[in-house]
Write a protein that binds this DNA or RNA. Structure first.
Lengths: 351, 351
DNA sequence: CATATTTCTGAAATCGTTCTCATAAAATAA
DNA sequence: TTATTTTATGAGAACGATTTCAGAAATATG
């Protein structure tokens, strides 16, 4: 229906190949014919049909995004939105397109990936997580398909590119922050330990405690999960706070969970930061907007996404480039959810 | 490189057309050869290359998403994430793919759209806003390209499909909710009036006031915008709350703005809901997690997205289907940010 | 002026499918 | 048995670009 390269060619009295070359601004075509052909393209309302090009070039100029629980849960967390922002931005400046997986279960997501790869829908893939028993990364490796993961590789760290924070160090610093405020009863609320982030941050937490000779009550280390309901999360918090040696400082590995925790604390009348100090992770907009505003470690999710995207595109263009890891720095942004420990805290509880 | 339909054909001793028909499970091929060909496909590790199909079918099985300020700002708002969830889900069940625009300015977004349409990258488009002076919708109409908009059409309401809430009614109800709580000094904090949502909700607010003989101070109607900084938003709130007849009930047309307002109020020591009642819009997860939890009108963003997506796909399959609007119901979900008016409120301010 | 070189353009194959049309073989009807 | 219909498959032309190879024209070189 629409006007093709051939139509333009006919009208301009040139060969289709010439029109094609004009399209890609080949130096082998004289300026005069370029001008003429361009004018005719304009007149006829010609526009490149990308699919023809894709077929012969074997490149779609689009990159695929694989999310944890894909749409269903990931979108809930502003952290992923922020990463997506970074990815989107990088893609835009390099003129790439974005394709999202829409599967929800681990299995359907995997099938989406297979379709993307085998169907040659995308040139490369960004995997937004690093997780035990994951099938996606091994699959991509096996098929030698370009990809980068956001998170710490479980294996083959020098076989593919990854973008990550130093999560154990970040968690150590966050914990130290509480310790320096004088807190000695520390709690940790993390996520599903199948994910590397969760493991790393827990490790950092324990490391800090150890280095300061603080011992952690086993019941003060818990995890809540996006796929859990908010109610479940609240239960976890309440249980922890009802334990005999309840923590006065809490490290929570996600702002989103941070808000859940705050909501739970509110319900049992424990005040932040007066009764308990909490520090979150990611510095998403909800941390700023929380009440009280949440002290959090900024993991620069935007940059995480940007670097992943940019790195992937580089790999696509120059595959011989050494694959490597890039570590995005973290920093604590202080807001109002932490406070120096004061001995009175525990007594308040006695009421 | 990879194995094609022809390779399979050769090995199976059939014509490529036969393999193609096996692929689409055509009834014109006998079960025996189907079985045989399938087995060989399996053995050879054949997988359909979508691009070949796209070229001849002239259909990509993917739909494009156009966001307001695209990635940059839209992702910030959980409302859009929620819509995207709905879209994603609908696409998945119908086996469609998702393509996001990555442009940031109005102009680059428009170019993204042109590329999508002319380049035949997508079969249809979902426009996530309805806005004055927008070029995208007129462009799509002019090119007779299938699309649906989430929001109220500015024109040609029966020329294309749209999915929307009844925003004036929703705002009227929200306002009535405050009025029934006894609030007589009402404020409205909306968004950019270029968008239809914003206009509708303001209209509903005014309508409710009028119907109850309440008059609104001009300075009590303000708008803050995602593209503004949070600081600007806070200024607006503070100014409003410092006016002589400051409102005791606030209608805020987005949860996200609701949190900004709450943060501002916090700073000037005005308590929610004791000193001022506020009601938000959209019922995103941040409303639930806010402190205090935000009373809000649920616009069912997930369903908004789902219906838009589903509707678009229907249009693609049966274009003769009548284009129509679908209105998603709204409802108020009560939480803790509203409270009956008590005469003491204003005095407290005197301190 | 003849030859070598460079510059510009065209012809045609190709990418991986789909799909229309034709046809051989098998099944049914006469 | 012959004619007719049905069933199963194949041949080959698309779809809309790109790209290799080759050749004509223009320019430079001796």
């Amino acid at each position: 229906m629409s006007v093709t390269i051939k139509d333009v060619a006919k009208k301009a009295n040139v060969a289709p190949s010439t029109v094609s070359r004009v399209l890609s601004d080949s130096p082998r075509i004289s300026e005069t014919t370029k001008k003429r052909v361009r004018k005719i393209m304009e007149e006829m309302g010609y526009h490149l049909n990308i699919n023809g090009r894709v077929l012969v070039r074997q490149s779609t100029q689009t990159i695929g995004i694989v999310m944890k629980d894909s749409a269903t849960h990931s979108f809930e967390n502003p952290f992923f939105s922020e990463i997506l922002k970074g990815i989107s931005e990088a893609c835009h400046t390099r003129d790439y397109n974005l394709n999202l997986t829409t599967g929800e279960s681990e299995e359907t997501i995997f099938q989406d990936v297979v379709k993307m790869v085998q169907g040659k829908r995308v040139d490369g893939i960004i995997v937004l997580y690093s997780k035990k028993d994951d099938k996606v990364v091994p699959y991509l490796m096996e098929h030698d398909f370009p990809f980068v993961v956001v998170g710490k590789p479980l294996f083959g760290a020098n076989k593919f590119m990854y973008v990550d924070n130093d999560n154990v160090e970040a968690a150590r610093e966050a914990t130290n922050y509480l310790i320096e405020y004088g807190h000695k009863d520390l709690g940790f609320i993390g996520g599903d330990l199948k994910f590397e982030v969760a493991k790393d941050r827990l490790q950092g937490f324990k490391l800090a405690a150890e280095q300061h000779g603080i011992d952690i009550q086993p019941e003060s280390v818990q995890s809540i999960d996006l796929s859990d309901s908010v109610e479940n999360g609240k239960e976890v918090v309440k249980k922890m706070m009802n334990s005999p040696r309840r923590p006065t400082g809490l490290v929570i590995t996600d702002d989103y969970n941070g808000l859940t925790v705050m909501a739970a604390l509110q319900e049992i009348q424990i005040k932040v930061p007066d009764d308990v100090s909490i520090i979150g992770f990611n510095n998403t907009m909800i941390a700023k907007l929380a009440n009280p505003p949440l002290t959090t470690v900024d993991t620069n999710p935007y940059q995480l996404g940007y670097e992943a995207s940019d790195g992937l595109i580089n790999i696509l263009h120059t595959p011989e480039m050494v694959k490597r890891g890039v570590i995005i720095p973290t920093s604590i942004v202080e807001r109002d959810s932490c406070k120096p420990y004061s001995p009175g805290i525990k007594e308040l509880d006695a009421n």
